[in-house]
Nucleic acid binder design. Structure first.
Lengths: 196, 196
DNA sequence: TACATTATATGCGGTACCGCATAAAAATAG
DNA sequence: CTATTTTTATGCGGTACCGCATATAATGTA
């Protein structure tokens, strides 16, 4: 493929996406403004619109970027160690992300900012559901391989509860929970999830 | 207390609160407009401001109204029946509320609309945390009384996971989960939470 | 009946926001 | 060098929203 025809992009698409992710992570879809993203990146709004579409489309791309990073972390859970070690490692990696950010803890971009939009926007509702299902399936995969649990254990049921613990961590982190409280939940969740 | 001095209220405060709750439940704080609430109730905006303060104050009152209704439902969990029956009954009562609404499922007003505001507004972050803690404590009370579980079981740890299941139900309902999926989660959660 | 008090109704001011339209700029292709 | 294509920059239009200020109405009190 040769060089593109017209005037080249003057901005870095990845940089804009990261700025958008930060803005939406802090304020959600309704609370964030394209003006702020445009100013933060030095890109004019019409350029954003041409490259990414409208505000909602940019938001959904930012969510996808975030989810992709989460899924990369989830692969560390692929069964290298024991079930409880893998679960703990994944929860801790997630919390690491949830508690990052200079301006305080922000939880999960998807779980903490999509639900509020999910009633008015079918598109976002479907995307949110896709995120939830993906988390369920990631845990399901891990539980299916868990030989620590007897054959009578329902891997699917465990996965639903494991997802719930993750969502809870996401919410609590954003609500300002301490690391100590977070750790207690991780321990309680893993302990219960690994019962025979 | 005698009658108040000046001109009497021409609107029903409770009716306004319910309209506010509906609006915020659907759209969240940023997405809902005072204009819409004013129009829906026939009350002019300045009257709302005089009676309830600004938008955020009205939102927090609507959340308090909702949480109060939830807590009333939680008291049904006071230990009348077995642990698993009480947990199931409470989850089902909550889900009943989460899946109500003509325009589709809305989940929990607090869990689904407060987090997005919790980064920018310390007031809402604290209020959200208070809701979470209240849920934790409600479950904690119930687990402390559960004699089905041995004395070695950590009631506090169980409560943290039980809360997580509730939050998960709230999120999934808003994401459009089916009643079947919701039921599976309740069953999986209760089953695990009642393990010895 | 006159006054004080509270609530209501209307309207203004300012801000922020999104989307689009138009014109200029920067690159490639012929 | 000209034409074409794509991006950029500026600006306009319209909408929605919140908060406040002012004037009016309705009630209790003297």
């Amino acid at each position: 493929m040769g060089k593109p025809r017209g005037r080249p992009r003057a901005f870095d698409e990845r940089q804009v996406m990261e700025a958008a992710r930060e803005a939406f992570w802090d304020k959600g879809l309704a609370g964030a403004s394209l003006d702020a993203i445009a100013e933060a990146t030095g890109v004019a709004r019409p350029s954003l619109a041409a490259a990414f579409g409208d505000k909602r489309a940019l938001y959904l791309r930012a969510v996808a970027l975030f989810v992709g990073q989460m899924q990369a972390a989830a692969k560390r859970m692929a069964g290298a160690k024991s079930l409880s070690e893998d679960l703990t490692a994944f929860y801790e990696a997630a919390v690491e992300l949830y508690m990052s950010g200079d301006r305080g803890q922000r939880g999960c971009l998807a779980i903490c900012t999509m639900p509020v939009e999910a009633v008015e926007s079918q598109e976002i509702r479907i995307a949110l559901n896709a995120v939830i299902v993906a988390v369920d399936e990631a845990f399901h995969e891990r539980f299916k391989r868990a030989r620590e649990l007897g054959p009578g254990v329902d891997a699917r049921a465990r996965a639903l509860v494991a997802s719930s613990v993750l969502f809870s961590l996401a919410l609590r982190a954003r609500a300002g929970a301490t690391k100590r409280e977070i750790s207690q939940l991780i321990r309680a969740g893993v302990d219960l999830l690994c019962r025979k």
